[in-house]
């Protein structure tokens, strides 16, 4: 099979299938959890749950190690925190503001918006790749992470790293013919999409649960989350 065929296959049926698996898988997971049942909180509140929740999301945007009164907690792993932060920033910008990806969004949901200049996206992509490597090294060496990291977590790392590195190589026209690396990029993206409902990358969804729960807990007790 020739690479332009593989490219057509991975941009076409494979991507389509992956999307379907992704959607079905995520709906399944979401529903399974929501239907486990929720108990009403009957306690008398002391503060506003809503405000706590809002505050919690806002606070999520600040990188904690820089807040003076909590810095002490992070003296051991500020780097991880920062690498994680940069990785997510990079992921967001590359996926939401890269010209190529905007075209994907447009083809998927019909809306498009202005891309950021490629050099910025490109820089951030590099930052994302470096962050992922830092996180990998950290995972390989940190005693707690060694304990926590099982096979699925390595898979997580891999399926996130591959789209990044192939995308970067493609944008820079390095080593491979464009259609080859484009195919690899697409195949790795499809892997990612299929894996998400199976692994912990789905945290992007459950984030909103746990973050809201914590915000509400803190809010009702009138503390800053």
């Amino acid at each position: 099979m020739d690479w332009s065929e593989i490219l057509r296959f991975s941009r076409g049926p494979l991507f389509h299938l992956s999307l379907i698996i992704f959607i079905a898988g995520m709906t399944y997971r979401l529903l399974r959890i929501v239907l486990l049942g929720w108990e009403r909180d009957r306690t008398k509140r002391q503060g506003s749950k809503l405000w706590g929740t809002i505050l919690n999301y806002l606070r999520g945007l600040i990188i904690l190690p820089f807040i003076p009164w909590v810095r002490r907690t992070f003296r051991n792993n500020a780097l991880t925190f920062i690498a994680g932060g940069f990785f997510h920033l990079s992921l967001f910008v590359v996926l939401a503001f890269g010209a190529a990806h905007i075209l994907v969004w447009q083809s998927l949901c019909g809306i498009s918006w202005k891309p950021l200049p490629t050099p910025i996206v490109d820089w951030l992509a590099a930052v994302g790749i470096i962050s992922l490597l830092v996180l990998l090294i950290n995972r390989l060496t940190h005693p707690v992470l060694k304990l926590l990291t099982k096979l699925p977590i390595w898979i997580n790392w891999t399926v996130v790293f591959l789209p990044f590195i192939t995308g970067y190589i493609m944008t820079h026209h390095l080593w491979f013919r464009y259609e080859v690396i484009f195919s690899l990029h697409m195949i790795s993206v499809c892997l990612l999409l299929i894996w998400i409902p199976l692994g912990r990358i789905s945290h992007f969804l459950f984030y909103f649960f746990s973050k809201t729960i914590h915000g509400a807990q803190a809010g009702k007790r009138a503390v800053t989350p």
């Binding site: 929501v34 108990e39 792993n77 994680g84 707690v144 926590l148 912990r200 649960f209 746990s210 729960i213």
Partner: peptide
């Protein structure tokens, strides 16, 4: 284990930051 517990267990990314 209701939704409250399950959704939080699912949300963990195994980042290990809580250790510190």
């Amino acid at each position: 284990t209701g939704g409250w517990v399950a959704s939080q267990l699912e949300a963990c990314t195994r980042c290990g930051i809580c250790a510190d």
